Amino acid sequence: MSGELKTLWRPTGPEELELVRRSGWRAWPPRLPEQPIFYPVLNEDYAIRIARDWNAPRYGVGYVTRFHVPEDFLARYPIQQAGGETILELWVPAEELDEFNAHISGVIEVVHEFRPDLDRT
């Protein structure tokens, strides 16, 4: 594998983040039966929008995490355009998540935290 790392982001809620913490900040938890894919996103802005606009209102807090994976390993996952031009994701099948986690370089970091604005009506 080459040494070139790709930065990925993952918007997440508090339950998933707690499982990441328990892994020593090194792995994503197994998917639930209703979650056949794990989808990290390719840009920070998209991750922020999901964490701020969807996760924070739904779970009371939304987080954006950042982590790094070798580019040559990621080449097996085609980029998925889930909406607009910058709404890009990788779709990792749930059964491949252990192998994906083994390729994370370093630790998973929390880079943003969002809570609902209680003054909004």
Results as ranks from 00 to 15, higher is better:
Leu5Met: 14
Thr7Trp: 08
Thr7Ser: 10
Leu8His: 04
Leu8Cys: 07
Trp9Thr: 00
Arg10Ala: 10
Gly13Val: 03
Pro14Tyr: 03
Pro14His: 06
Glu18Tyr: 06
Arg22Asn: 15
Ser23Glu: 11
Ser23Phe: 09
Gly24Tyr: 07
Gly24Met: 11
Pro29Gly: 03
Pro33Lys: 01
Pro33Phe: 01
Gln35Trp: 13
Pro40Ser: 12
Asn43Ile: 04
Asp45Phe: 11
Ala47Leu: 04
Ala47Asp: 04
Ala47Gln: 02
Ala47Thr: 06
Arg49Ala: 07
Ala51Asp: 01
Arg52Asp: 14
Arg52Glu: 15
Trp54Leu: 13
Asn55Gln: 14
Asn55Pro: 06
Ala56Phe: 04
Pro57Asn: 15
Pro57Ala: 14
Tyr59Gly: 05
Tyr59Phe: 14
Gly60Val: 11
Val61Glu: 07
Gly62Pro: 05
Thr65Asp: 04
Arg66Asp: 01
Arg66Val: 06
Arg66Trp: 04
His68Asp: 08
His68Ser: 13
Pro70Asp: 07
Glu71Val: 12
Phe73Ser: 00
Leu74Trp: 01
Leu74Ser: 03
Pro78Gln: 10
Gln81Ser: 10
Ala82Asn: 14
Gly83Ala: 08
Glu85Trp: 13
Thr86Met: 09
Thr86Glu: 09
Ile87Phe: 10
Leu90Thr: 03
Ala94Gln: 09
Phe100Ala: 02
Phe100Asn: 00
Asn101Thr: 07
Ile108Leu: 06
Ile108Phe: 02
Val110Cys: 08
Val110Lys: 03
Val111Lys: 01
Val111Asp: 00
Glu113Trp: 05
Glu113Ser: 15
Pro116Ser: 11
Leu118Asp: 09
Asp119His: 12
Arg120Gly: 07
Thr121Lys: 15
